[in-house]
Design a protein around this nucleic acid. Structure first.
Lengths: 190, 190
DNA sequence: TGGCTCATGTAATCTGTTACATGATTCT
DNA sequence: AGAATCATGTAACAGATTACATGAGCCA
């Protein structure tokens, strides 16, 4: 196993860029950032409040964002806006090659060790997986339809569209695989 | 945003089960476990030495594995074997529904924020992604060919095969998407 | 002899989640 | 009135990586 090579400049914290990226489109509150992570970025990125709020403070201290009180009456609201410096910081990161793409699929882990569980037990996990994928695919298809209408007028939407299309391609492949896997396991499961 | 509901029994550490699962097939050293993670499990799970060795010790303390000195001359080697209790522990986990499947794709993050980087810059990330996928696909296809020959005689191989086929389906979908995305961005990039 | 692979392990550190704490507003 | 949502934040903890430390065996 070759020596894990030294990471020159690598492995910067990604949440900073995820947040900066979201703010590059429009000013947002921490709460709204969390919502974006749960919807638009949901399929390939996530973060909890417990990491979003502290990161926002650090980003401000570093001069990458500015904050503004946008409270409505007594309802507290702090909107963050990206600065020129923050944009530069984001752009620099966008320029460097991708360090890591990774998936952590418990479903595949349970599948890989399927012998211990048997064909029937493993089948259940695949069926559950299939159902989740079906739900997510529906949502993605809806957003593709919407984004297609504005991809030529709003530059950002082209990139959102490509991301959503990635999801559609991927999830459709998952479903095709589910069919094959289910058939194979049903043959064994008796 | 609905209250994140309380996790009754959930969110057990997964590395324990990944290791127990590998040991359910055959006794292995910590070093060999790492190798499996870098090859067979590579596409959906990973771990470093810094988490494998300590976990192995805990697993032994808990009675889920036993260790045996299998040194060759002065070359230290400690092989771990799963116990009946360990098998039971693994089986119980395999029975419960999957908690989380997640992907963390930096490539998609950089794509999503493509406006800041421009079509040409974003294209580079896709080309790099495509190349990596091509390499991995080749390896996966080779293992599918091998596993197909033994899926009916060796039960475990059926599950390895299904996992590898998942990878093939997924990666083929990625490549199809790369084509579409590249074409779209090339149209913009001038 | 030098470099790679085999082999184990620990300490410092990083990153992030979970659970808690608090409170306003809106919807039914 | 009560539930859900909007909204911010912190402390404790979990989980894992990275870098370091150490050394044997093998191959060119």
């Amino acid at each position: 196993m070759h020596r894990e090579e030294k990471n020159e400049m690598a492995n910067t914290k990604k949440i900073d860029y995820a947040i900066l990226g979201l703010l590059s489109h429009e000013p947002l509150t921490g709460y709204e950032i969390k919502q974006r992570m749960n919807t638009s970025l949901q399929m390939f990125w996530g973060a909890s409040f417990g990491s979003i709020y502290p990161t926002l403070n650090i980003l401000e201290k570093d001069g990458f964002v500015t904050s503004e009180d946008t409270s409505i009456n007594a309802r507290e609201r702090i909107s963050y806006t990206i600065t020129t410096l923050g944009r530069k910081h984001l752009k620099e990161w966008l320029l460097i090659p991708v360090e890591k793409d990774e998936i952590r699929y418990e479903t595949l882990l349970k599948l890989f060790f399927g012998t211990e569980n048997g064909a029937i037990g493993t089948l259940k996990h695949i069926v559950a997986f299939e159902q989740k994928v079906n739900e997510k695919l529906e949502v993605l298809r809806a957003s593709v339809t919407i984004l297609e209408q504005s991809r030529d007028t709003e530059e950002e939407h082209l990139y959102y569209l490509l991301t959503a299309e990635f999801g559609v391609h991927t999830y459709e492949a998952y479903l095709k695989w589910c069919k094959v896997a289910k058939a194979e396991l049903r043959k064994r499961g008796k």
